[in-house]
Nucleic acid binder design. Structure first.
Length: 873
RNA sequence: GGGAGCUUAGCUCAGCUGGUUCAGAGCAUCUGCCUUACAAGCAGAGGGUCACAGGUUCGAACCCUGUAGCUCCCACCA
């Protein structure tokens, strides 16, 4: 079998993904194994893959692949989200380009367009995930508007309504005047803008005096129903109980006092517009103020405003300012840096508005969700996010779930013409429900609520409804609770918290055991990668350039949980280089197969190398398992990287590599293959394609079942710590020899003799390896100095390499003197500690012992060096 | 305004119970090498006032207090 000298990701990756699909290696059905489940955070159905998805899904794939190898019944459920408002906005935009206005379409016509759009763009992102190597069970792909899923959303609405946890109420909400829909608090983005603060004079009734208020929104004076001052404010005490006249509209309003008003801000005097400001609304309730809704849902002035009717709110602001000025009511204007809420989807300035909406009552529902995160039944990685979670959950507000949109799950409520309504699953049931109230209606008498539910009201059921958990028990009982959730901290409240709530409400159990929060992928300048900035590389192109494995490794190299990832292509380059390194190591090992001489027995150097490498592997494997347990993914990768590159390639392979043209013994060959296979296994979650390719070359594999995807994760076996320590000494000796060679221009090709004064620690077991790697012709153990030679010290043993020719003795002396000086300084600091009575009395025995050892070691080292110095003369 | 977190090498980060391998890793940089697996490589080297200032302790990157800077979350002050 011809092995290519270069690894070609493009063809390899497509080949193996097709193979995995063909053999259904990611398929999962309940069986008697322990399940390991991850549900994908469903991307927007019409979205395309961005770098955030890449990071997020690489981590999920890594976790699920490792679990699969560990013998769990591993399942990763893929799917997409209908993303109500986001998708509807895209469809509206697309129709507008075609000259079609949403308002000209019926609901059904619009939904037809929306479904067309969904079918056209839906699932592109899932195809892209396959390029990444995502090991999802694609047969289980779910969409939040699938029939059964849709039904579960409706049923949970009905259920919560029955339990009194969903209610309909008129409240202040964030209104998007462009999309004409209510928004949840989370869908409002506050931006810093420079606005103007207008000082407006109101005449006081029964006096010639004026009171001046400060406002950023002068147009809302049309809805003013009070003036408010702080009761403690001495300047305005005389105004309590008086009345003022709203300019232009000439309405008389009371002057009230409330602590809410800040004395320091503006004039310390506030105009109150209960219909158009959250706080004013609360003030209005408290003081029983009249509520004047002076704005239409599209942001124009309503009839109730009396003036400027039909004018847009921002035009009105301009006009009213001029008119106030003309009438002598505008005292002054100031610049004011201010925060203004914008709709996340339409970017329109959000209008606080009084509106009749559906709500979920959150306080009680949230309790188990809060407790079970705080007590670590559900673990957050990193745990710092528990703080913001608690903060939010303890102050949780009712959730506005109705949206004035068409794309989504339609609210199962029916209204008659008299302001009465029932909640029911179907029209027939609604009619029946009305009959129970002695209202004998036909379908013509009632109308279903036109609104749909907030998109998160469907995705909060995701871990349950992907298994049709509301209707069949078998699957959900097996796979639920899921194991790990990997998501962005931005949607902790939108989604994570609510899934936990739904989990306890409907399963009386947590939805997942661990939540891993990824960071944000940023560019080199620290900006978030986004389509609009155009600073995001195309993941598909990246994978074409560096290979999917290279990109996966690049993404994970520097992304501890919760940390932002400053992405740079050079990371992927490092990933690609790593893949190349592994490929070349493979070529070397595989090449030995035909060099095997059955008669050749294993050399002692190879024997010790194999033993050491096995121990080293196990010791790192133990560390890896611990890293995974703690979700220290980057650490796990780096430990794997060093194990493969440094321990295996740089040391092991060099130790067992036969000289050019020489034969290979079969023991070493087979041991090397076995070690390589174990390395491939721990590499596989990071680099699925490359490892499968090499795996297929390294042994006879049964089709399908022989895939590395289902190979078993190695068990930690015996670790010979002493051997590992001896190896460290060995490697330092080799480095010592290399240094002597380098500093004295002794070429590697020229063999040297090594004398060892073994007064300290040195393992003769490694001597053959020293000879092999250091090109040492012979090793002699001595009991004294060897004059006329270079010396270095490792672990208290002296190593001598006799001078060859033309050696710089003075230079050598100088180096030794420098080392003596350094060691004396070190000794001094150790002794100052040991001479400190308090230290000797207080420090634990082990520490004290350590310091004494340091002292002795330093003393003997100085002695050795001094002797060496005299021997040079 | 309320809350949380961060500051360690040029960059990205480890450093777990205050002491042992406490100043580390990878990348980048520099110096040699195209040495029969690999120049996408090999062999070496340099690089730090652990943000700053105090304190506790025999001993502090680590604990305490203060200062400065950065980040995030919540609230939304007209």
């Amino acid at each position: 079998m011809e092995i290519p000298s270069k690894y070609d990701p493009a063809t390899t990756e497509d080949k193996w993904y097709a193979y995995w699909m063909e053999h259904k290696l990611f398929k999962s059905v309940p069986d008697n194994r322990i399940p390991f489940t991850i549900v994908i955070p469903p991307p927007n159905v019409t979205g395309v893959l961005h770098m955030g998805h890449m990071l997020n899904n690489t981590i999920q794939d890594l976790l699920v692949r490792r679990a699969r190898m560990q013998g769990f019944n591993a399942l990763w459920v893929p799917g997409t989200d209908h993303a109500s408002i986001a998708t509807e906005a895209k469809v509206v935009q697309k129709l507008r380009k075609e000259g079609i206005k949403k308002s000209d379409l019926s609901r059904d016509e619009f939904l037809k367009h929306a479904w067309e759009w969904t079918h056209k763009h839906g699932g592109i992102i899932l195809e892209q995930l396959k390029k990444l190597g995502a090991s999802c069970d694609w047969d289980r792909t779910r969409f939040t508007m699938d029939e059964k899923y849709y039904e579960s959303v409706i049923d949970s609405f009905i259920d919560l309504h029955k339990k009194g946890k969903i209610y309909r109420g008129e409240r202040m909400i964030n209104w998007d005047p462009a999309a004409l829909t209510a928004l949840s608090d989370e869908e409002v983005i506050y931006k810093e803008v420079s606005s103007k603060l207008y000082y407006v004079k109101y005449k006081i009734v029964g006096s010639d005096d004026f009171v001046t208020i400060a406002t950023t929104r002068p147009e809302t004076i049309l809805g003013d129903t009070a003036i408010c001052v702080n009761p403690k404010d001495e300047r305005y005490k005389h105004l309590h109980g008086k009345r003022a006249i709203v300019p232009l509209v000439n309405r008389e309003v009371p002057i009230i006092a409330d602590e809410y008003v800040e004395i320091e801000f503006g004039t310390g005097c506030l105009k109150v517009t209960p219909a158009h400001d959250m706080n004013d609304f609360l003030l209005g309730e408290k003081h029983q103020l009249e509520v004047i809704n002076m704005m239409n849902d599209n942001g124009t002035i309503s009839e109730a405003g009396k003036l400027y009717i039909g004018m847009d709110r921002f035009d009105c602001r301009k006009q009213i300012t001029e008119d106030l000025d003309a009438a002598g009511h505008l005292a002054k204007t100031e610049e004011l840096p201010n925060k203004v809420g914008y709709s996340e989807r339409s970017d329109a300035v959000v209008e606080p508005r009084l509106s009749l909406q559906w709500w979920v009552s959150m306080k009680e529902l949230s309790k188990p969700a809060l407790d079970n995160v705080m007590n670590d039944n559900i673990r957050f990685f990193p745990p710092k996010f528990k703080n913001s979670y608690r903060n939010w959950m303890e102050n949780v507000k009712d959730w506005c779930i109705s949206r004035q949109l068409w794309w989504g799950h339609r609210i199962p409520a029916w209204y008659d013409g008299e302001g009465d309504f029932v909640v029911a699953k179907t029209e027939a049931e609604a009619i029946a429900a009305f009959s129970a109230k002695n209202k004998n209606y036909t379908a013509a008498d009632i109308k279903q609520d036109p609104d749909v539910l907030d998109t998160w009201f469907s995705s909060w059921l995701w871990p349950i409804s992907v298994f049709d958990g509301f209707y069949t028990k078998e699957e959900v009982d097996y796979y639920y609770p899921t194991n790990d959730l990997v998501t962005a901290p931005e949607i902790m409240f939108f989604w994570v918290a609510r899934m936990i709530i739904a989990g306890y409400e409907y399963r009386n159990e947590l939805p997942f055991r661990n939540v891993y929060y990824t960071g944000i992928v940023r560019d080199k300048q620290g900006r978030k990668m986004s389509k609009s900035l155009g600073n995001s590389p195309d993941p598909i192109e990246l994978m074409a350039k560096f290979g999917a494995d290279g990109v996966r490794v690049g993404m994970l190299l520097s992304s501890p949980a919760g940390n932002d990832l400053p992405f740079d292509e050079s990371l992927c380059e490092q990933g690609r280089n790593f893949a190349n390194k592994i490929w070349n190591a493979f070529r070397l090992v595989k090449g030995w197969e035909e060099k095997i001489d059955p008669a050749l027995s294993q050399s002692p150097a190879s024997k010790i190398a194999v033993e050491w490498m096995q121990s080293k592997f196990n010791s790192v494997l133990k560390q890896l398992n611990d890293d995974y347990e703690k979700f220290r993914i980057s650490e796990a990768l780096m430990n794997t990287y060093k194990l493969v590159w440094d321990d295996f390639c740089a040391w092991y392979l060099e130790m067992v590599k036969p000289p050019f043209g020489s034969a290979m013994d079969k023991e070493t060959y087979h041991a090397s293959v076995a070690i390589f296979e174990n390395l491939l296994k721990v590499l596989h979650p990071f680099m699925p394609f490359l490892t499968e390719e090499i795996w297929s070359y390294l042994g006879e594999r049964e089709p399908g079942k022989g895939s590395i995807c289902v190979a078993s994760w190695p068990e930690v076996s015996s670790i010979n710590e002493e051997l590992i320590a001896d190896f460290t000494t060995f490697s330092e000796v080799i480095i010592g020899i290399r240094n002597v060679r380098k500093e004295n221009n002794i070429p590697n090709k020229e063999s040297v003799v090594l004398h060892i004064n073994n007064s300290g620690k040195n393992s003769p077991n490694f001597d053959p390896a020293v000879q092999h790697l250091g090109n040492v012709s012979s090793i002699n153990y001595v009991t004294d100095k060897v004059s006329g030679s270079f010396m270095f010290i490792v672990n208290q043993s002296e190593y001598f390499i006799p001078f060859t020719e033309n050696v710089d003795v003075e230079g050598e002396k100088k180096k030794i003197n420098e080392e003596i000086d350094y060691t004396r300084g070190f000794l001094k600091s150790v002794e100052s500690k040991l001479n400190n009575e308090k230290f000797v009395n207080n420090a634990p025995a082990a520490v004290l012992e350590g310091e004494r050892k340091k002292q002795n070691d330093a003393l003997s080292k100085i002695k050795m060096l001094e002797e060496k110095l005299t021997s040079l003369n």
